[in-house]
Design a binder for these strands. Structure first.
Lengths: 102, 102
DNA sequence: CTTTCCACTTTCCATACCGTCAAGTACTTT
DNA sequence: AAAGTACTTGACGGTATGGAAAGTGGAAAG
């Protein structure tokens, strides 16, 4: 069976968050928020949703005396992301598009 | 500026429809419906929405005396699809993956 | 003729989700 | 004590999705 698009990842903002996290071990709340140019509440909610899905781990700590939050993909999240990308590949491949222009 | 995800294309079913149409000159209603395993009403609605966006052309005709509907991507639709895929690629490339299978 | 089919189209719904804005929390700093 | 930091939560409004079911315009059957 072909891989399916993952509804927990597919929404534009989710995809951007997950993809950004997939690139690193861990990322700070503010970094993700600013890189993707989204609001605090949007990031907070999506991160919670991804945590509930088991895809993201939320770590809280301090930098000096200021609270800080870091996100990282869980193994499940990494696998789900790869699977989601595979699903996109399968769909896009059907259209004949390729990275290699003819 | 990097290409943006196209909200008229991004929804899973839309992406599949557009991608399928991108592979051909024209496709029959029943072929698209059966290939994607979606209901008549869902296909009809998405096709109308894509037509409203200017991305799909809906042609009606007859095969014998039976009505039949064909869909095709407009040039605008093809361009929008390419652009959308480029946006996906830009997001996914950040993670080191690609939407184009190698 | 008139009922039934066919090939979609539309409407009705119920759910779900997305993002903004406002308010809340738990400290820390001034 | 008041204000700020770094998020979190709740209330809302608007959109969208899909299933079910009724509707439409012929065509075929009885």
């Amino acid at each position: 069976m072909t891989p399916q698009l993952d509804p927990a990842i597919h929404a534009p903002t989710r995809l951007q968050i997950v993809s950004l996290l997939a690139a690193a071990e861990e990322a700070e709340f503010a970094f993700v928020r600013d890189t993707l140019d989204i609001s605090d509440s949007v990031l907070s909610k999506h991160a919670s949703a991804l945590e509930t899905a088991g895809y993201v781990k939320i770590r809280k700590g301090y930098v000096g005396k200021r609270p800080r939050t870091w996100f990282s993909l869980t193994n499940l999240g990494r696998q789900a992301y790869r699977n989601h990308v595979a699903a996109l590949q399968a769909i896009i491949a059907r259209s004949g598009l390729s990275v290699f222009p003819q």
